[in-house]
Design a protein around this nucleic acid. Structure first.
Lengths: 143, 143
DNA sequence: TATTCATGGTGGTAAAAAGTGCGATTTGGT
DNA sequence: ACCAAATCGCACTTTTTACCACCATGAATA
């Protein structure tokens, strides 16, 4: 089965070489190493090795026509992240650029994944979140 | 099944590190640890671990496209609160900021959840409560 | 070919900030 | 007045930040 629910919002900062300390609480839940790849809405997704494997397994079994592009995006963009003794991970230059990460970054725990956002993007995204509208969208699923 | 009905209004205060003592009565009903996350109208919601897990389970099984925004809001805003020996819980900086919590804080028991408000916001909200209008909103839904 | 230089990645340390624990005092309800 | 709950201040620990020196690689140049 899966692991503990990832959750929470964390402010972190990146050094000039593209390393950021990954929140201790999330590190605990994800294990020794994990996978960072491209996500949706311009953020990076972070999965445990196991969950990443599981997602890939799903994708592998889909018709190529439907899944090839997403696989290039998702699997092709992936990298292994191993926190160093100080809990820092290196975000490769390509991913940094893709997600427009500079100094201030936000890390989110979202159930079975984490998300890494540039602070600017997150704030913009966040401002447009309207909790009433979200609730409405989720009526029907028993919320 | 669910637990005892949460109810009441409590005035609490937060220390400089963002800890607040959580009302003893509500603590009793919620258990050893519980979840604090973003709610509606600018307050924080507090759920028992079980209720939170149940909601998350629902969310996890929805297609990402439909649920991602709400998960960011709900799960991404969540944190485990574990009262210390003095009954205090820590509200993480991100949530404090989001709910604009400073020194004076109001805690409400509302059925299966609690709500944490900044005193100012609560008073403003409270002044604008019009019981006739409230009843009206409930026509149509069988109250 | 050997040298320089920019770039990306690694490792470590010191200090700041965030979080935690404890004890003493105050508050508020009964 | 008494007791439990809440508040406050202080010390301590962990996590994060901000630097800095170093290494490897590959491109540019003499």
């Amino acid at each position: 089965m899966s692991m503990k629910t990832l959750m929470g919002t964390y402010n972190q900062s990146m050094d000039v070489k593209g390393r950021m300390s990954f929140p201790a609480k999330l590190r605990e839940a994800l294990g020794e190493q994990f996978i960072v790849t491209r996500g949706v809405d311009g953020c990076l997704f972070v999965y445990s090795q196991e969950d990443f494997d599981r997602k890939n397994e799903q994708l592998k079994n889909l018709p190529m026509k439907a899944s090839k592009d997403f696989q290039r995006f998702f699997t092709g963009g992936a990298t292994v992240a191993e926190p160093d003794k100080q809990g820092r991970i290196l975000i490769p230059a390509a991913l940094r650029k893709w997600a427009e990460l500079e100094k201030d970054v936000i890390v989110l725990g979202v159930n079975d994944r984490c998300e890494i956002w540039s602070k600017e993007k997150w704030e913009e995204f966040n401002e447009n979140i309207d909790s009433d509208a979200l609730l409405e969208a989720l009526e029907g699923v028993g919320f």
